[in-house]
């Protein structure tokens, strides 16, 4: 790893050079919230964002992604990865991306995800402001923040820049990176530690303790109680950086012989998700709100832990913030069960 300093004044030039080179996706303001959008100008960049509405995985698996086009009985895969830079990703989202990298690699390689992922350079940045529901400081400590190419930490007068990969190296000519002092390195480490410590919300137990106890509460009435106000809207799934379920559909185009097969993000909280066609209709193996509600929490705290090496939750707090009924917060559910 190489470490440099980039002054506040030089950040603009660096970003402007990046924009000239390839599309740069970075946090920009949208009313009271933020989203990862393609930067048109450095002025739109908001490294002081708290969190974005959707996680950056949308750049690797778009919310609606064409898989195959067909015409006259012939078909072709839709792969057209374009080089891009993903700028300003928070550490919790970097963790989630490394989980997604593995999920789309293990057992069956997902070429759509990985061709986009491979074409992307990821530049992380520290959390300057906390989202009101964030708890990343107390969850998924097993997994390291890794897989990104460069990381910026805001310190006095500028940024400490860590360059982690060859892809990161390739960007060095685009900015005025200067030498860094030991003190600046220490300051940056403190900034990141404090960001973890200052999360507005906290889990009180380790992932392993949580995994075991939550599973023991599979049959508890806590799920029914907690999900009474659930709308089954699936918002908590859609905004989650470690949710990756999808639905596949075929669609004809207006011309009679062609069309496409696409996938779209799906949500296990919605009623239709767990339906199975059977003769004479359909059966649903998670028919009750409480069952679907439990499935999400189980999936985040225990089902995928062996596969991922930690829980499938990075503590971004998006699910909790997006839930209009205010029942999706994993912290309140987990802490309640852990205190029993």
């Amino acid at each position: 790893m190489k470490t440099f300093f980039l002054s506040d004044g030089d950040l603009d030039e660096f970003v402007t050079n990046l924009i000239a080179k390839s599309p740069v996706f970075a946090p920009v303001a949208k009313k009271t919230r933020f989203v990862f959008n393609q930067l048109e100008s450095v002025e739109d960049l908001r490294l002081d964002y708290d969190t974005t509405i959707l996680p950056p995985k949308k750049l690797f698996v778009p919310t609606k992604q064409d898989l195959v086009t067909f015409e006259h009985g012939k078909y072709e895969e839709c792969l057209a990865p374009g080089k891009k830079i993903l700028f300003g990703v928070h550490p919790y989202d970097i963790k989630a991306i490394s989980m997604m990298d593995w999920i789309h690699e293990e057992s069956n390689f997902d070429i759509y995800y990985h061709s986009n992922r491979k074409a992307t350079t990821i530049i992380g940045s520290n959390v300057q402001n906390h989202y009101k529901k964030a708890f990343f400081g107390s969850v998924c400590k097993e997994l390291k923040v890794m897989g990104h190419d460069m990381f910026l930490t805001k310190i006095a007068d500028g940024y400490l820049v860590e360059v982690l990969t060859k892809k990161g190296d390739d960007l060095l000519p685009d900015g005025n990176f200067t030498d860094v002092s030991k003190e600046q390195i220490k300051n940056a480490a403190d900034v990141n530690t404090k960001a973890d410590e200052n999360c507005p919300s906290k889990l009180k137990n380790t992932s392993l303790e949580i995994k075991h106890k939550i599973r023991m509460y599979y049959d508890s009435d806590v799920w029914k109680k907690k999900s009474e106000n659930c709308f089954s809207c699936g918002s908590c799934n859609i905004v989650c950086p470690t949710c990756y379920c999808f639905d596949i559909q075929d669609e004809w185009a207006l011309e009679p012989t062609s069309g496409k097969r696409y996938r779209r993000w799906d949500a296990c909280l919605t009623c239709e998700f767990s339906e199975v066609s059977v003769q004479g209709g359909s059966e649903n193996f998670r028919e009750e709100r409480a069952e679907r509600f439990r499935h999400r929490i189980m999936r985040k705290t225990s089902f995928l832990n062996d596969k991922l090496g930690g829980p499938a939750c990075v503590g971004c707090g998006r699910c909790s913030g997006t839930c209009t009924a205010d029942i999706a917060d994993p912290v309140s559910i987990i802490n309640e069960i852990m205190e029993k």
Binding site: K30, K31, T32, R33, V35, T52, I53, L54, T63, K64, F231, S232, C233, G234, S235, I238, V239, Q249, E251, R264, W265, A267, T270, C271, E272, T322, T324
Partner: peptide
């Protein structure tokens, strides 16, 4: 194929700021 899920989900997909957040 027609969706059976609610409008909330479509707002999230297009990253609309929630009316309640506004």
């Amino acid at each position: 194929y027609v969706p059976t899920y609610p409008v909330c989900l479509e707002c999230k997909l297009r990253e609309t700021v929630c009316r309640y957040d506004d």
